[in-house]
Amino acid sequence: MTGMNAFIHDLIAYSPQILTGLKNTMLLMGIISVTGFFGGIAVFYLTLSSRKTCRIITEKYISFFIGTPLLVHLFLMYYGLPELGVRISPLTVSVIGFTLNVSAYNARYLMTAFHGLDRMELEAARAEGFTPLEIFCLIILPQTLRRAVPSLTNQVIQNLKDTSVAFLIQYNDFFSQIQEVASTNFEFFKAYVTAGLVYLALVSVIVVLSRRLEKRIALPGF
């Protein structure tokens, strides 16, 4: 039991650092959830383009980012770009890398939702004289977004969990700070389990919030 007390004591002693780490984790998660959301919509829009080359390139983009590990993209930018004289901070690298990844996933969820859409509605909108962009914004997007809510909120949870990867490129996130604590007192098990519990708690918060969101935006017949 004294071990536990000592460990808690250490956690408290390091709490400013840990809180900064937690703040950085939330910051990264917040940014990439927003950029990934809008990026996803943009990519989704491109998949519906009337130009074949545009559609093919977009498909390739999605396929590449779904098929290759995020860590590779981060390392490529963090360790590779300095050779070209481009030196960017871990946060910027993470934001760019995550945004490209998350956008690809979100676009895919929106595409799946789009497949379940009633094509006659789009025909009707075209017949009424709406432009393609208007049809996208007024008819397609509101419906696909609504249908994709469970996947999109799941992606936010995924974002939170995946931010822990950023410490591998020296981003001072929550997990990196927990590592610091662990490496000073050698209580690896307790430290990592604590980290796990904190992530689980944060996931629960997102789950509760997304349930509320789902209820709020629910429409009859959806």
Binding site: F175, F189, G196, Y199
Partner: peptide, 23 residues
Amino acid sequence: TFVFRGIPVLVLLFIVFFGLPSI
């Protein structure tokens, strides 16, 4: 399902590989 869908891969890996030896 809650625990293993909620925990980051890297955190679980570190619990198993670096954490378990300390107990």
